[in-house]
Design a protein around this nucleic acid. Sequence first.
DNA 1: TTGAAAGCGCTAACAA
DNA 2: TTGTTAGCGCTTTCAA
Lengths: 348, 348
Amino acid sequence: MKKAPPPTPKLSDVARLAGVGNATVSRVLNGRMHVSEETNRRVKQAIHDLSYSPNRIARSLKGATSGMIGMIVPSISDMFFSQCAEAVESVARENGSLLIVMASHDDPSIEFENLQLLLIHRIDGLILASAQTRNTKLHEKLSGLTVPVVGLDRPLREANIPSVISENRKGAKAATEHLLLHGYGKVLCIHIKPELYPIQERLHGYVEAMHEAGLEPLLYKAENAADAEACIKKHIDSEKGTIAVFAANNLAARFTWEALRMLHLAIPSQVAMLCFDDFDLADSLTPPMSVVQQTIDDLGRTAAELLFRRMRGQTEGVPQSNNDPLRLPTQLVIRESCGCHLTMDTTH
Amino acid sequence: MKKAPPPTPKLSDVARLAGVGNATVSRVLNGRMHVSEETNRRVKQAIHDLSYSPNRIARSLKGATSGMIGMIVPSISDMFFSQCAEAVESVARENGSLLIVMASHDDPSIEFENLQLLLIHRIDGLILASAQTRNTKLHEKLSGLTVPVVGLDRPLREANIPSVISENRKGAKAATEHLLLHGYGKVLCIHIKPELYPIQERLHGYVEAMHEAGLEPLLYKAENAADAEACIKKHIDSEKGTIAVFAANNLAARFTWEALRMLHLAIPSQVAMLCFDDFDLADSLTPPMSVVQQTIDDLGRTAAELLFRRMRGQTEGVPQSNNDPLRLPTQLVIRESCGCHLTMDTTH
DNA sequence: TTGAAAGCGCTAACAA
DNA sequence: TTGTTAGCGCTTTCAA
């Protein structure tokens, strides 16, 4: 039994219909160089009549590019990364590329496999939010790669790959200083996953601010609300004045938030708080949460644009020293949890 | 000037090194049929030595499959869709496929372009959360397609394409009935984007429950918190007893939430509320929000599995009538905003 | 300005 | 069990 005639016309079909050679069709397809007005018209007509669209796979095989870039992130559903992905997809589209996303689930071996898969599919470039900063096997592989790679959120120093990240240290420092300015007796820093580079940077920023204020840093790792509760309790007990908490990320903020509720402590009158990373309902909470905001879209966009520049072989705009990540500014968004309205008069 | 020798070895390199023919290498590559143990070993060795990996593009050209599926969603960064995407990527990976995601931004023409792009890249299948239920041009195109398509969250009836969605109607009905059970004098339904199929279904569910209770449905479309405020104010004024609000989705819930705060109305004692779609901080709010929960992972997984089954040509497990979407159950998650703890004794 | 022809890296008949 | 060969649909010299 014969198959139905393949419903997808090929280039040669167009050529035949237009009464020209294959090469000519190819020419009008990729920006007509040296094609007469008349021929051009005829070919376009034929393309239209057959509603022909070129087979990108065949084109890719010929050596050029695949028209696809890859992106490996720890989690696709994570708000941060999905926002990045949206921005990357957008830039990819502007550059005529498709985006393949893969989740590593923070597992170095899955991450490595993902990389292999993407390479087999001949992606033209890769955006990588690596599962870990140190992953020798991965870095080795990356160093030997011919396709451009750009790091996102987590730098890839050893592999000599440019990265785009937020000003985590500066942002955290500014946040801490802001809390300090309110004159709180103690500013704790509650964090999770201190092994992640962005978190490390935030902790540095916090410590720096504390030191400059002549204060002892009070770092606490919290894996859940109970942990957060424990450390807050400890400090609220031994202290008359209001204390403050700088939560190093969303999740830490959440734990802190729940802890404060358990302890029936009022925000900000008894415990002020400020956290890194904005989130959806931050300003619908009671009180609205003051945060350090990353411009996530910009992170994604910038990384993608850098990638495409490198894919074109351009070097301008690429960070001077490959080892120094491009750092995008953060913004302190003051709402109410930091206690600004309480201390408004004291600042005057 | 000569290029550096192409760093990517090809199949023929492996063949030469192993001292065998191309076909043999190809055979061991795709599950050795009729390859001697010895040859198999030699080829494997050569593959390893060259750290060769086959070029998926060349393979695809030969006609088989591209090893990629596409997914078009209104927004990649939307929590719902990014969770779906994560599940789909996971299933794709299990089936040896990569996932290309594209955002339509709810624009039918972008959606259509995206579809074209994906087809040009010869995807093997498509998961589509369509921008609109009625998109004649799109449906026409879809009907003529040879690659399998599965609808997600929004059915594609006219194109005769199977879809996977939540039990929106049932879930909304259950939620409304739950509120009704508390004996509130009025149950409003605040919604947005009633043109979307899932929302429509939820509104139907709400209306059904109201009718069955002999009550007049009170539907209000709110585009912002002020709209929500207006309609609540209207009903709280004319009524002594507690009223309740069923918010048809996240955003409507948010508007309602903000409205209630503006009006200094206590939840649930003055206004009870329940919303469709769980969200991140739902149980960290004061009071924690009762919700109708969709099993988003399941939606994504189910859609993807259905797609792969169809790609394999299997028909079992594919919904009997193509016109009837596969509906996945929702779950009523009772927290505090619906007023359960207030009425606990009255229910006995 | 155009067309013929030689591949891109792989798979799948068909022979051996 | 193996190797040879002919393409997949396109781009790209090279001549005409």
